[in-house]
Design a binder for these strands. Structure first.
Lengths: 254, 254
DNA sequence: CAGTGGTCTAGACCACATA
DNA sequence: ATGTGGTCTAGACCACTGA
């Protein structure tokens, strides 16, 4: 009696639904549809796992997989003994895709080029330490670049690299490869924090971008860690007219 | 022989690890650590499911749960017959938390208040339709608000609401509740697209924010749908000095 | 064609929160 | 005390795909 009894049932279901994917996917999207359509408002208790298992004629594990994913996605909240409930939507979260500059520029249909401006190695000043969130005076590589789209200044990059975290950067001139791509190739899988503000450019930025010092600019500060160790801080300054950050939000997964 | 043979093993593992959570969580974070530390570089093939199942002395399902989650998180890529491989990191993606203005202001330690300025009901003009991505001349509710932090102008809100999607909005004056919270309460679970730019404010914004027309401003445009139907478009204009958008990126889950 | 991941089962025990 | 979700098992079949 260890023969798979569920097999006939499974095939029956496949025949009935036919349309698409796996069962747990179907359960997931069914529930998701109920939530997104408003049919199940926030606070609504969705059926228990064993109920859904009965409805879909499957094992509880299959239902559990669907519900667990919905919980991770933040669509439902699960409470022991109480059940699973539709969440109130998170205020507004959005996934911001910050691709590399080359892709960005080429997506605008322009020809990408960058020039390295200054490159300087020194011990971290007070300002550098503040940028990197460091307390010690580690060796630092400071580099500035100008990124162009079809020969028009597109973005000014002002970066410090923590050489204690990335010693190999000391041997790189960043003439043929920009610091960003180089770092991704040499220090993959980092964590990052972005700060996005609107300001007037500092003098260096305005000069290199060839804009008036009063031109509003979008400034993206990115601080990157590797295993809680600061790796690099970079400030991208875009003339406000050049850049749009676009972020999409969907209740994910599906 | 249907008695759970795995029980002794399970308890053995609990005793061995003791530290924390579930087994699949531990497997997940073990692998994640190998990846984030660079010990397993992009392209590296991680052990097969059955290998890990042997190592951790558990069933393949448990390993599968961990690996599936890593795959969803984008840390590994799974290919049938070939195995699972460490991904190259996605360029840079970040989760931007756009909370509501009340929370935002209060997080700055200020007292939140908002005033509704204009409220007007009319048929969608060409401009309105462009904002909402609509082709038909539906009824529209246009509303502007000023949000203040400790009586200082913090953000100017210029919004249009598609009354065809949210008829109930027609009965709301938005004097006691701001349009944002009202919409979240009445139209939960929407999809949204955000556009973030830096510009000089338009005349109305500058006037209400009491800033010079040359002050750089962070402008957040948000278009919201419900089931592919445009619900609302809103433009938030912040004096550049007032606002920082902060986005964090981690290789998620764990 | 052989072996991987993808999926599913029919149980089980447990922690835990709630009624 | 009871019943929920959380976790896990020891199998199984299948689809796909790369060697």
């Amino acid at each position: 009696m260890t023969t798979p009894l569920g097999r006939e049932r499974k095939h029956l279901q496949r025949a009935l639904t036919a349309t698409d994917a796996s069962l747990h996917t179907r359960i997931l999207s069914d529930i998701k549809r109920h939530i997104l359509s408003g049919h199940w408002p926030p606070g609504h208790r969705i059926p228990f796992e064993h109920e859904l298992a009965t409805v879909y004629e499957c094992s509880r594990m299959t239902v559990n997989k669907a519900l667990s994913e919905l919980a991770r996605a933040g669509l439902i909240e699960r409470r022991r003994k109480a059940g699973s409930f539709v969440c109130r939507p998170r205020s507004q979260a959005a996934v911001l895709e910050i691709s590399d500059l080359k892709t960005e520029v080429e997506d605008l249909g322009r020809v990408y080029r960058f020039t390295r401006l200054a490159l300087r190695r020194h011990t971290a000043t007070e300002a550098d330490r503040r940028r990197l969130g460091l307390s010690k005076a580690v060796p630092i590589l400071a580099v500035t670049c100008l990124h162009l789209g079809s020969e028009t200044p597109y973005c000014f990059e002002d970066r410090v690299i923590n050489l204690a975290a990335v010693p190999a950067a000391d041997d790189e001139a960043f003439l043929w490869i920009a610091p960003g791509p180089w770092l991704i190739a040499h220090v993959p899988w980092t964590e990052a924090e972005h700060r996005i503000t609107a300001t007037t450019p500092d003098l260096a930025s305005a000069q290199h971008l060839a804009i008036m010092p009063s031109t509003p600019c979008l400034v993206v500060d990115r601080l990157t860690w590797r295993e809680r160790q600061p790796v690099t801080h970079v400030r991208f300054t875009y003339p406000g007219s050049a850049r749009e950050l676009i972020a999409r939000f969907e209740p994910s997964s599906g």
